[in-house]
Design a protein around this nucleic acid. Sequence first.
DNA 1: CATGAATGAGAGTTCATTCAT
DNA 2: AATGAATGAACTCTCATTCAT
Lengths: 207, 207, 207, 207
Amino acid sequence: MNKRSPETTLIRDSGRGNEAAILNAALQAYGEKGFNGASMRDVARGANTSLSNLYNYFPSKSHLLAELLRRANSELLARTTAAIEAAGDDPVAKLRDAVKAYVGFVVDHQTAALVAISEVRYLTGEERSRVVDARDRTQSLFEQIVADGARTGVFATPYPKDAARSIVSLCSAISTWYRPGGRLSKKTLGEQHARYALALLEAPLTP
Amino acid sequence: MNKRSPETTLIRDSGRGNEAAILNAALQAYGEKGFNGASMRDVARGANTSLSNLYNYFPSKSHLLAELLRRANSELLARTTAAIEAAGDDPVAKLRDAVKAYVGFVVDHQTAALVAISEVRYLTGEERSRVVDARDRTQSLFEQIVADGARTGVFATPYPKDAARSIVSLCSAISTWYRPGGRLSKKTLGEQHARYALALLEAPLTP
Amino acid sequence: MNKRSPETTLIRDSGRGNEAAILNAALQAYGEKGFNGASMRDVARGANTSLSNLYNYFPSKSHLLAELLRRANSELLARTTAAIEAAGDDPVAKLRDAVKAYVGFVVDHQTAALVAISEVRYLTGEERSRVVDARDRTQSLFEQIVADGARTGVFATPYPKDAARSIVSLCSAISTWYRPGGRLSKKTLGEQHARYALALLEAPLTP
Amino acid sequence: MNKRSPETTLIRDSGRGNEAAILNAALQAYGEKGFNGASMRDVARGANTSLSNLYNYFPSKSHLLAELLRRANSELLARTTAAIEAAGDDPVAKLRDAVKAYVGFVVDHQTAALVAISEVRYLTGEERSRVVDARDRTQSLFEQIVADGARTGVFATPYPKDAARSIVSLCSAISTWYRPGGRLSKKTLGEQHARYALALLEAPLTP
DNA sequence: CATGAATGAGAGTTCATTCAT
DNA sequence: AATGAATGAACTCTCATTCAT
């Protein structure tokens, strides 16, 4: 009926009735108004279904958020892992491609990326830890690369332990200001941030 | 009765009864639960006053947020401006001190910094633009320094127009993970981020 | 799979699929949470079937209750009638055995007895009157015995018209406090209440 | 404005706004539809106030029930205690007057008595135990009298330990069928039940 | 006979805000 | 400046019931 923006490809039709529509509506609602500002009625309206039917798919509003974040983090982790594995052994290549993959995810799924960083705080208990774990696993990938490069001396930064976090912060912050169709394309942003990352690690840059 | 943490010094007793208590309670409530997750009852409880009395000080919940953000951005702008003015003419020194000032603000007023970046979205109309303007003015300071250094060649980055935003992102992101009393002190964080910033700009680093 | 307690023998497998399981689940649910406190979902869960399948057996929640109470009152009436008929002509013997039968029913089907007295009120219209009629028929048995004994003088109470109701109240109240396996067995309770009844009627007691 | 029936005197105007109106409306609603069948909207309507205002007086629906039962049991205990104290030393007189007091309460506050016995089950935790304790204290009064009379031999029943409970059951059951203005007045009911009680205890009756 | 999806109504509770005192 | 009472709207969630398969 309505052409989907590339954004929404994160949530694929699972064959289970309205599940995908609900998740997408929730993503949009949480993205626009925040988790607490968006109501289940908003989600139902966006999914073109009834309020009560939401509860046939997700037992609570926070489960809905949790499932959203689970999928987002899972996709981010998959993309980043794949990029690293394809990059060979060079820490510089690994980092460059990991950053490009991360940035690519943020650009492709801006809303999901934004919700993932700004709304995790509203999860508690196991829901929260599952999501945080996934997020931390992605961050560990960067930490590992930085640690490797620091050992071999290619990353000269005096703060190898902390720099990885800054690189991830830099990439995910894109979700807060990026506007599709603007001056900066996905490709440009990837190259920019790859260079920021290497510079920040004080790696030799090939101009 | 209870010793105030340095955090709370952002809001000074204005001599107007409970105003400071209310603002501090609101800051804490919005910081803990987010703007929409915190209720006016939460604020009243935190300020040890009655719900209805809040409205003798602030006409609405969002005015309260706006006032909070106004003060936070104002203090941040003041600190950054002062640091730059005291740094002399060298772009490197200016940037270094501006970053240290920014980081200092985030560490001193973590909650305020966090609320300032994560809850602006819930303001609208003039309330919003006043706050956004103040935030942009701070960012412009960094852009100006970077532009100056790029012109003289001391900042070799190929992306001078965009790098300033990244530097600011890096500094403000501290508010999302910093824990007082941890491994990283305010001083260390300032030095670290100053170095990150210069590295990112591809300025020559004196190791 | 699971051995049924004697309680559940009130509802016999009618050969109609899940009917017995549903009635038993409803009995337990209404017993634990009351008619309005128990949901059709509770019943479905207890019967190990789906919510919608309940409606293949019973057209509504209140029909389910009505059927339950119909069976309970029917069994109670049958037991009491049988006991009276077996007791011969002596009003004293008749009353004693009627009370024992009633108490026996309450002990054997405590939940059903409890639900029967506490949840009738949620039936309306014909459903209600059918159940109330059955209940009244049982009570009439007692009233008849008392009237007979009063005529012959063996029951000396000045309130023959009202005493029967009190006797029935006494018996059915057992369902509100009885705990199986406690100090009082079915046999003891029967004897106790038979004596209470006769004493209350001011009949000569053989100690 | 509207003349209050004697029933409602259980809840006196406490000077706190709508408190009495709310409690009376809740009593009536719970009495008519049961705790789970009555909604807070029903209560609000009956109290001529808004739904949300109920929560300025009682923090939850079950607190409202608890407070109701607390008052009912308290009044019942007070009446019974007073009657016993005024009755002198004779167990027969004590029992007779205690029963009359209990019956008087049930007749004067039929709805409260009915709700007290049929809706306690919907309380849990401390709310429940407070109410149950009060109820048990009243019952203990009867047990004490029966035990005393059994020791002196004036109550010849072989079941002194259990008979007290039956007497209380008998009295409270009145609330389930009594209709004001019917054949049986408060006075008659009191005398009837006093006689039932003594007969049940196998005390010598003065005809 | 059995199910999962769907729905409109309504549940208890909390919301920001107002007002009389 | 301060309060408790009041309110209408909105909240998340559950209800009994229906229907297509």
